[in-house]
Write a protein that binds this DNA or RNA. Structure first.
Length: 501
DNA sequence: CGAACCGGTTGTAAAACCGGTTCGGTGCGTTACT
């Protein structure tokens, strides 16, 4: 089969981007495939074109509702109507309708949580699944253990679906992520296509700053001088908002905060404004990023240190997708690592809380009649958050061990292990930040990802020596991109769907 | 660690000050359905 012809036929492109053809060929030959392609190389085309060339349905597991929405829209823009996102956005009637005619769709998007439902799983089982896709597959190891446990159950779900042909897609190519991915999906034999995590056009720099006050002033200075647009990352919602206001008071107008505590409407608005160049700076938490396809981000500043080098790499990787010169700047003050340490501990249930829950369960051991009532009681009395409770409940009720005591001990072991892993990751981030490894930052970060630095790079990092003014702009361009042309945009959509596939 | 908040103190009225405590980041689902 000539893949270029098919590409032309279905998407009207003439050439593949790096990696796409190899991945698609591997799938079409019937191999489970792991593809770790750099950001912005068109990962979704890998499953879209494969889907067209295979018989049956493509199931795509996606971590965010907004991401599903983007991808379904993208497919529809390309003239594909047989696409559905099975999620909580659907009204009851729509949902029932969709589920009763699942086989009429080609592309079905789902969250991992949806697969928990036996009903959904049964319906999916009735299909001829051509391809099972895990998009943003690094979520398995980044979120599976203590945030969204259903990510770790993807292997089970996959087995229940009869181990269909599988494609895992991500841009975070660490050996560890890969290992955990393979283990949790129960892959035995697979092809992998793995590209370097290095982004040569992004200069890496860390600035040591004595105090928080100095850091605040330095941030204003940087944002005033650096060529935008840019993202500033914070580890607290309050700080992100506070600094967005502070920047506004200091003459930077087109800046907004973005974090998970804001309502959906505002989040979409701000994201759209940033994408269409109506904002220069976003003061964000880690909520901002996944699915952001903006080519010309010129800098990413970290006001706080991320919790691990994987997150750091993902966040700075949002800069310079157009291949042009960009900079990642981390501002470090002594003691900054305390915040990530605190976050790591707060995420997991404490020993005291677990003991408390255990004792209460033991007392009631033989008198559990109303589980929902008991659950509410346990949550409110122990003071566990929703996430903490889910971790605990997963072990205390969903575990195969015989006795409650065994499950309680396993839970404690698990939490200790997770804490140690998290602390270790923070330490590695810290060591890199403080340059205790000495020498080139790029070399050191690549070493962490088990890669060698093979090429010499101009303006590589602060350790190699850089001139920050290269990234400054003398003439700030404050004119917005001409207001977005929705009319034209719509005409294009209509034209494409008319042309048909 | 730093920020925000709370309660008590001060010394007679209100606001400033102190010390102690708490908190901090990511998102799906939520019924019942063929």
């Amino acid at each position: 089969m000539n893949l270029e012809e098919q590409l032309k036929k279905y998407f009207d492109y003439t050439t593949f981007r790096s990696g796409q053809k190899e991945v698609i060929s591997s799938i079409l030959e019937g191999n489970h495939t792991i593809a770790m392609l750099p950001t912005g190389t068109g990962k979704s085309l890998c499953y879209q074109l494969s889907g067209y060339l295979l018989n049956g349905q493509v199931i795509i597991i996606s971590p965010l509702l907004s991401l599903m929405q983007d991808q379904t829209e993208q497919l529809m823009m390309n003239g594909e109507k047989r696409v559905i996102a099975l999620n909580s956005f659907l009204a009851q009637r729509e949902r029932r309708q969709a589920l009763s005619q699942l086989d009429t769709y080609k592309f079905i998007f789902l969250s991992p949580e949806m697969l928990k439902s036996d009903f959904i799983l049964t319906r999916l089982k009735e299909l001829q699944i051509a391809l099972f896709v895990i998009d943003e597959a690094h979520c398995i190891s980044q979120w599976g253990y203590d945030f969204r446990p259903d990510y770790l159950k993807l292997g089970d779900f996959r087995r229940k679906l009869g181990n269909p042909l599988t494609l895992a897609l991500t841009a975070t190519a660490t050996p560890e992520v890969k290992k955990e991915l393979i283990a949790s999906l129960n892959l035995i034999k697979w092809n992998e296509f793995i590209y370097s995590v290095d982004r040569p056009n992004i200069t890496l720099a860390v600035e040591m700053i004595d105090s928080y006050q100095d850091k605040t002033e330095r941030l204003v200075e940087l944002v005033k001088n650096l060529q935008g647009p840019g993202i500033v990352y914070f580890s607290s919602k309050k700080m992100a908002e506070k600094m967005a206001n502070y920047l506004k008071r200091h003459g930077i107008d087109r800046v907004m905060a973005y974090h998970g505590g804001m309502d959906q409407e505002n989040r979409i608005l701000i994201q759209q404004q940033f994408l269409h160049s109506q904002l220069d700076v976003i003061c964000a938490t880690s909520a901002f990023g996944m699915g952001i396809n903006k080519e010309n981000i010129r800098y990413v500043i970290h006001f706080h240190m991320p919790i691990q080098l994987e997150s750091y790499l993902q966040e700075i990787g949002r800069a310079g997708r157009d291949g042009m010169k960009s900079i990642a700047l981390l501002l470090y003050s002594p003691g900054d690592e305390q915040l990530p340490y605190q976050l790591a501990e707060a995420e997991l249930p404490s020993e005291a809380q677990i003991d408390f829950v255990y004792r209460l369960l033991e007392e009631k051991n033989n008198s559990i009649h109303d589980f929902a009532k008991l659950e509410n009681e346990l949550i409110s009395l122990s003071g566990l958050t929703e996430i903490q409770w889910r971790i605990a409940a997963d072990y205390l009720f969903g575990n195969t061990a015989e006795t409650l005591q065994q499950r309680y001990i396993q839970l404690k072991l698990f939490i200790n292990e997770r804490l140690q892993v998290k602390r270790k990751k923070i330490n590695e981030m810290l060591t890199w930040t403080q340059a205790q490894l000495n020498g080139c930052r790029r070399k050191n970060i690549l070493k962490y990802f088990k890669e060698d630095k093979t090429i010499e790079i101009v303006d590589c990092c602060d350790q190699c020596g850089i001139d920050l003014s290269v990234f400054y702009t003398k003439m700030k361009n404050h004119t917005a991109e001409k207001s977005y042309d929705w009319k034209n945009h719509l005409a294009k959509i209509l034209l494409i769907s008319e042309r048909g596939r």
